[in-house]
Nucleic acid binder design. Structure first.
Lengths: 240, 240
DNA sequence: AAGAATAATTATCGTTCGATAATTAAAAAG
DNA sequence: CTTTTTAATTATCGAACGATAATTATTCTT
């Protein structure tokens, strides 16, 4: 017969006062802390850990979210939707400002938004999970940011706005985007000590890009349009 | 009293023949399949799933690896050490080849190596886990690849090899590296249909970069060396 | 103040996980 | 062929997971 009265090393439960707050606020609190927790350990983080950080019990989560996946969806919305600024696109189209300054201002504000552990890590985690939202976000970046930048840049170089954007042109601006993005990953995600501050990096990267992109864009414009989106014939001889 | 003889829907166990192979080969098999599995679902993947893919039972893993973390360490070694080619550095230093061609050849081979689901996804997963190996790899890339490229490029522009590399110069080449890397992430990790093939992207990105980098490198060289590594005074007025 | 509504709790279920011990069977040694 | 070695198995443990049901206690309504 085993002793049933174990020595209780944990002191008596602190008779925790249960705080009752408005449902909407509780909902927001869950999402806020979930963003923080998931960004640290990934979406495999436990619901008990999340509840503990909020000072509540684990089953309470299921009063506000039918399942963990619904909570994750709310986290996606917070990152991808709530932190997107429509003014980015507008600023990029403002022809009263020189193109260099427009691009610089955009990336200054954009990196201020996404260069946080929460944003970058959840972006990477969600990308690795293969959920559609990452593809959707990438498409949004291309249509709302990169294509406007590309058109504006071409215009600034004196090229007519009439001929359509080539995929190769858009891809060039993806390279700039990726280069800047990777600076944030190295600093925030990998925790590396950066030898160059963000503003200087942006200035140098954008100046290098703008200085070199005109000749390459001209070359692209002078080449045959690439296969898939060609308006000419349905078939053409590949130029290997 | 419950019925103890449940209707057995699963047919009789196939009396699985147990195959016995050499320890070293079993070890390699575990690592190989672990690379594949972890790259798909992350390091949270179960040891039972891994064993199933090998056609063995789960406890067998612990004959070859003391713990799951040791298996993960072996996976890191496979990705970061075994797939690194020392010839990359050598090729970049070969002054018989024009700088543009040297950079192009390197990135052609480098992206051929890392633009696989296994490499890219494990790289991203490991980076998010915050393990030291990612920082170590980044340092290796900088010293073995980017600094040699930067020096070679500067040399090709006629600058003396004597004055030390500025952090701002190295950072410029990180931007190129990140831009190229992000192409692979979009294609392989996010599964996006790329409108521009890898070779064209590399050519345009590198041409844009090389065309624009000379003027920016000159500006960097003409500016005051940045704060931290300055050999001049211990203090200086910050230039806000 | 009494009762209704509901936010938060306790208790618990069925899975899955990494890991260990004991057992079995295939290959190596004699 | 018999014995020894060891690669592989079966069985199982304790912890952590997502989720549900029943209960308690706080706030709102009248």
């Amino acid at each position: 017969m085993a002793l049933t009265h174990d020595i209780d090393t944990t002191e008596a439960p602190p008779k925790q006062r249960r705080s009752r707050i408005k449902p909407e606020e509780r909902h927001r609190e869950f999402v806020r802390k979930a963003v923080s927790l998931f960004s640290e350990v990934g979406f495999g983080a436990g619901t008990r850990e999340l509840a503990q950080r909020l000072g509540v019990t684990q089953p309470l989560l299921y009063r506000y979210f039918p399942s963990k996946d619904d909570l994750i969806a709310a986290v996606y919305r917070e990152i991808y939707v709530n932190r997107w600024k429509p003014e980015w696109r507008e600023g990029l189209l403002d022809e009263a400002v020189p193109i260099r300054q427009r691009i610089l201002s955009f990336y200054d504000d954009y990196t201020r938004t996404i260069f946080t552990p929460e944003w970058l890590r959840i972006y990477l985690f969600s990308g690795l999970r293969g959920v559609d939202i990452t593809r959707l976000y990438t498409t949004t970046v291309e249509t709302e940011i990169l294509k406007p930048i590309a058109r504006a840049t071409r215009k600034a170089f004196g090229r007519p706005d009439s001929d359509p954007l080539r995929p190769e042109e858009v891809e060039l601006f993806w390279t700039l985007q990726g280069g800047i993005f990777y600076y944030g990953v190295r600093q925030i995600v990998y925790g590396l000590e950066m030898q160059v501050d963000r503003e200087t990096m942006l200035r140098n990267a954008i100046d290098t890009f703008l200085d070199g992109v005109s000749s390459v864009m001209e070359r692209i414009a002078s080449e045959q349009p690439a296969g898939g989106a060609s308006a000419g014939g349905e078939f053409r001889i590949s130029d290997n």
